[in-house]
Nucleic acid binder design. Structure first.
Lengths: 209, 209, 209, 209
DNA sequence: GACTAACCGAGACGGTACGTCCCGTCTTAAG
DNA sequence: CTTAAGACGGGACGTACCGTCTCGGTTAGTC
């Protein structure tokens, strides 16, 4: 765990530890900050969002932001995570290739347009700031890998995949191409690509069945 | 090509155009700038490099930098490209999987330690600045895709691959996982990974041989 | 007097009014605040003392300070007044010039080193804040003028001074040069200067004796 | 002299030393800053003037102010010095007491209302910041002492004063009361006070003539 | 050989945002 | 009802760099 460091996301102290004294954290400010971050993100794009802009938009002191987050990237990460919460649906069609294709198509949809730009902005930060990269992994990457892991695990239970397959490797092979296109924009993240990846993975791993 | 825009890398006027009058570009300054950029890059990391820092380190006016490059990212890109020039060797063992494995192992080697950090820094900029992203694709990405394309093309010539295989897709499936691990650092870019990717690609595409 | 405004110095509610219910004022906190103020004053100088610093040093809530004083200057004024309480001795040698000289020499002594710096800090605040200036006059200036007034009055009683002399003017003529040197530091507040002022005043006003 | 320190007032390098390289200082900005400082000083008072306010009013970057002055006080000092330049007229009536009275009356006039507030603000800063105090002495105090010195010197030449009189002491005895009333505001700086001081000084020093 | 044009270093310029400090107010739980 | 604690909105600080500009001073061609 992280121990003494500032928590990645702004949680008002763990509920078990009583905060003891002092004015408690303002939920209104917290929400206003995240809402302002999201608004500016859509209006101006990741690069043009600033801490000062968020503070001003949220009618909040800058210090209140710095008290709970370490950088603009972390504010935006939390805002974006809240915004996309619950959007990761795990399909269950009974067939691995179909599950993958549906899942990836849906994932690609979530990376088009503005959302894609936001994710690119967040990753830009993560590439440069190790602390934030950790936050990004914990909050953003992990949940998406977990969803994919579920799909693959169901494939194993169904017998479509060998039980000794290296799931983490498969996940890298699937998400890798997605990120590669998201980063480089040399080709689109369209349903066709989702199908190609799914077909590749499923046919390779299940051919001997 | 880019038409009227400033060239991506700093080329002293196209040789065909008459050089006109005036003092010619100083090669010393050019070299000093790239050397300073590289030095600061290794000393302080991508994020902490600034145009002012480079100018100061190179004992050069800021304007001299702005005259030939559009951003710090482009200076660094050129410096790094020069630094890594000629490092892309295309193996030719007569076997696709072996070629891939050798090539990837060597590519991964070039992304360890500081070089990996530099590439991460460059990609961080590319994610946020479309102009730079284009430069990055042209200079960095394209040459690496091209090398992989050669390898795959030789596979086709040898009959290991079907002639109608989608080469660009295959390249995405190979480079994707590499970038994904480079970005997220959740797992190492080691020879084992090179082997796993190579095996996956080769066995899938050549199984019917 | 000040009528409805918050009292200049912190008096625990007038003793005649019934104390009402609730937790009584903490004398410990009061003392701790003044002690902390004095300590920081000597350690860091007037300008660097802050309310937050005093609160922290005294292990007291900021509100507790704001409840009893209106500004940092007033806290420091009270702390300093307490610190220098009873230091104003009125000499009585039977001779005006001697009395003046003794009194001024002693006054100058009290303005050397740190105490002088503190007085300069307090005056700095008074110059800018009218409310505090009033407090300063009431607490600091008035008592010193009063002492001088006593000395001059005794001179009149002794017949050394004419009974219609403008005492307040004389006081200005005496204290003025002292403050002038304290402010500008262009020359020292030494016994020689005390003697020169005393001689000037006494000889002018008593020459026809 | 001051040697390596930043000059007290913002002089574009001594005219004899050629600045050698770089864009020269902008006279427009310099003037705009001083004009803005003066304007804000009259509109809002010393305490409410801020560096940011001056920069904004002058349409100038903050750094341009910090490049040439060390504090808000120094900007205001220069603006005020320029504003009051040439206002110190040395009377020459042929009589010491008259000269003093005229001079002081005029000096008191220059310390009424806003100007008095500005001087109080400047002195407030000088009391707390030794560097600024030096600037204040050099620019403000010195010229005024010098004028008074001229008056007294003419008195010596005329034979009204003994040639061995301690001029610096007399100056302290004259300016002291003025500052004392300016600081404490316990009595007005009116013509009557000018007359009282002049009479006191002149009669004491010239009685034996 | 002077003229001219583009280069060069230096560094000041207007400007944006940073992250920090401290203000004076407020909101808790504890006493 | 006071207290310690500490979060809050807010204002200004002084700094770092941005990308532009304006100097004096090269350094080539072209007249």
């Amino acid at each position: 765990m992280k121990a003494k460091k500032k928590p990645i996301t702004s949680e008002t102290k763990s509920p078990s530890k009583p905060p003891r004294a002092g004015r408690p954290r303002s939920a209104e400010s917290h929400d206003a900050i995240l809402a302002a971050a999201l608004k500016l993100l859509h209006e101006r794009g990741y690069r043009s969002v600033t801490i000062e802009g968020i503070a001003s938009e949220a009618a909040v002191g800058k210090q209140t932001i710095y008290r709970w987050w370490r950088s603009k990237a972390e504010v935006i990460l939390e805002a974006f995570a809240r915004y996309t919460a619950g959007r990761i649906a795990v399909p269950d069609s009974g067939n691995l290739q179909t599950d993958l294709q549906v899942f990836l198509t849906q994932a690609f949809d979530g990376l088009t347009q503005e959302s894609g730009e936001v994710v690119r902005g967040l990753m830009s930060e993560a590439l440069i700031d190790p602390d934030f990269a950790e936050a990004m992994r914990d909050i953003f990457i992990a949940s998406r890998r977990s969803a994919l892991r579920d799909i693959l695990f169901k494939g194993i239970q169904r017998g479509e995949l060998a039980s000794d397959v290296d799931i983490e490797l498969i996940i890298d092979l699937i998400y890798g191409p997605m990120w590669y296109r998201l980063l480089n924009k040399h080709a689109p993240l369209n349903p066709r690509f989702a199908k190609q990846i799914s077909e590749m993975i499923a046919s390779k791993l299940t051919r001997s069945d």
